[in-house]
Amino acid sequence: MDDAFSLDLETVTARIVPGARGIANLWRLSAGATLQTWSFDAVAGDTVLHPLILRRSPGGLRSAESLSLEAEAELIRVLDGSGVPVPTVVHTLIPADGLGDGFLMTRIEGETIARKVLRDARFAAIRPHLAAQFGTIRGTMTRVDTARLPPLPFKPAEVILARLASRYDNLGVARPVFDLALRWLEQNAPAPLAQYRLVHGDYRNGNIIFGSEGVRAVLDWEVAHIGDPAEDLAWISTPPWRFGELDRPVGGLGSRQQLFDAYEAASGERVDPARVHYWEVLGSLRWGVSCASMLEWFTSGRDQTVERAMIARRVSENELDLMRILTGAD
């Protein structure tokens, strides 16, 4: 890391955390080219005053699908105190900070590696309750007044489907199973909703911090939008997040009934299982197209690692999952 970055971060931290004299334990959590996540502590001597996370984009660039970091920070600020568990945003970067676009938030300790939550003994007592917690949190999101939120893109099913179809077409590799799914999705579009809601957009185990007592926070709001709550209920139930636990479709942890019951109790709204099923097909295809796009990363030289090549070869998993869903075997 360069010294200018850590000095700038120290200056900002000293300004926003009362009593802070410096920073320690600066550690990069994510290696994304356009989005960096750093963990560090605001300190005075040997005393940790405030554990922090910095999310920033050095050049101010993000993918077209994502919110600006400023909008993401504003969204998290609005959700803080709404009952949706989120980290507390302590500062949104300004140009004078010299750190690019981004924000600082309180670091919440806990586990984000889904496989550990599924297997480790320390989560054994809470595991049977997590599918219901996912439903309760999603239900609480449904009660958030969308008029209070910062401007978010409106993405009902037809918008997401059209975008997905064009991403698939642009890959230039014919995948008959994907076409089968696309055709089904085009023929079975859900009716418009009377009221659209806040949607997280990537609501799954890997974007949640867990403690032994349950969910501590929902992270990564960068693809949040206004849309159909069934999208989140379905995404957390798609096959890629089951990690082999096929009979616990919700994140490998529980049943759709647990998820839906808790959602209905928290939101006061009914779940239409056919609608969630539609979004499960759409979500599985979305993950499949994402895996398929890894081929281009590998062949173009953008990322020639073995790991990238192996992710590209996981498209067949999605094709199998789609065949199972479309033929009623899932």
Binding site: R313, E317, D330
Partner: peptide
């Protein structure tokens, strides 16, 4: 494809 790519995948 799965026989080659990922024969231990649970739903396979």
């Amino acid at each position: 494809k799965m026989k080659i790519d990922q024969p231990t995948y649970a739903s396979y």
